[in-house]
């Protein structure tokens, strides 16, 4: 047995305490590596998101954007590395999807997933922050406060006149907004939004940018993954470019899009 082995257990807690003191960040990723059948989807990915920050993430297909979200939301366990939430207090790699959602991380999927055979209203009711226990929900009744919250969300996502339509009957863009509304109903600290404007018209795209800015202004931290450069510009936030599972460049959109490597692997000349 080497000296390093015996030292290991003692040094670990010290490191944990240090990390807690070091980071004020809402989300903290350090050296996260994920390998699928020899393919390195994430390669020592490190970045942080501050409380109240909105961040856009761009990058070519296969850069690891969705895998990164999977790691944060507990769908995939990283092989190596740390994922911490709430100023380094919570280790997300030890929790499952449900626990992480309850902690206050909401996720919008790339393909809009709403509950198709529920009305728009019921979709929001289901997402609304509150009782999650199976037995308690048998007898749950909607309170006036909950109804007000839902009305407020309807105002934000502008689907009020569609409240009694089935989720499945909405247009693609409306589904995207409904899903964002469902995230809002969860009232998360951090929203992870995967390609919110894919398949949207230009007008819808601009409205979505506005919607996300509004959500961010209300104190939610937001991480947006998107390919649409006009949309990213509309957001006007810090941009990070991923490539081969690691951060290639970070800064304002102008800085990132002027970066030689980013042009080479992603934007094209």
């Amino acid at each position: 047995m080497s000296a390093a082995d015996t030292l290991e257990p003692e040094s670990a807690p010290v490191e944990a305490i240090a990390r807690k003191d070091l980071t004020e960040a809402l989300l903290y990723l350090d050296g996260v590596t994920v390998t699928f059948d020899g393919f390195r989807a994430l390669n020592a990915l490190s970045f942080t998101v501050d409380p109240g920050e909105m961040r856009a993430i761009i990058g070519p297909n296969g850069a690891g954007k969705t895998t990164m979200m999977d790691c944060i939301t507990g769908k995939t366990r990283p092989d190596k590395g740390d994922v911490f939430f709430n100023g380094g207090t919570t280790d997300l790699t030890k929790l499952d999807e449900t626990q992480i959602a309850t902690l206050g991380i909401g996720r919008k999927f790339q393909k809009p997933t709403v509950f198709e055979s529920h009305t728009v209203l019921d979709n929001l009711r289901l997402a609304l922050k509150g009782q999650r226990g199976a037995l308690a929900n048998i007898f749950k009744r909607e309170t006036a406060a909950e109804r007000e919250k839902i009305d407020a969300i309807f105002e934000t996502i502008k689907l009020s006149e569609h409240r009694h339509r089935m989720g499945g009957d909405l247009s693609h863009g409306q589904k995207q907004w409904l899903e964002i509304g469902m995230l809002l109903a969860q009232d998360p600290k951090l929203l992870l939004v995967d390609e919110p404007v894919a398949g949207m018209t230009d007008a819808e795209t601009a409205q979505t940018a506005e919607l996300l800015r509004e959500i961010n202004a209300n104190g939610h931290s937001v991480v947006v993954v998107e390919h649409d450069m006009t949309f990213v510009r509309d957001l006007g936030v810090r941009v990070m470019c991923l490539h081969e599972g690691a951060v290639l460049a970070e800064g304002t959109l102008d800085q990132v899009s002027a970066n030689e490597r980013v042009i080479e692997v992603y934007l094209g000349r």
Partner: peptide
Amino acid sequence: SHFGKVLIAIRDAETRVRFTG
């Protein structure tokens, strides 16, 4: 009931239900 609505949601999109908490 609300419980039943969650059941139907599970039938249609179980992953979404988990990510909803």
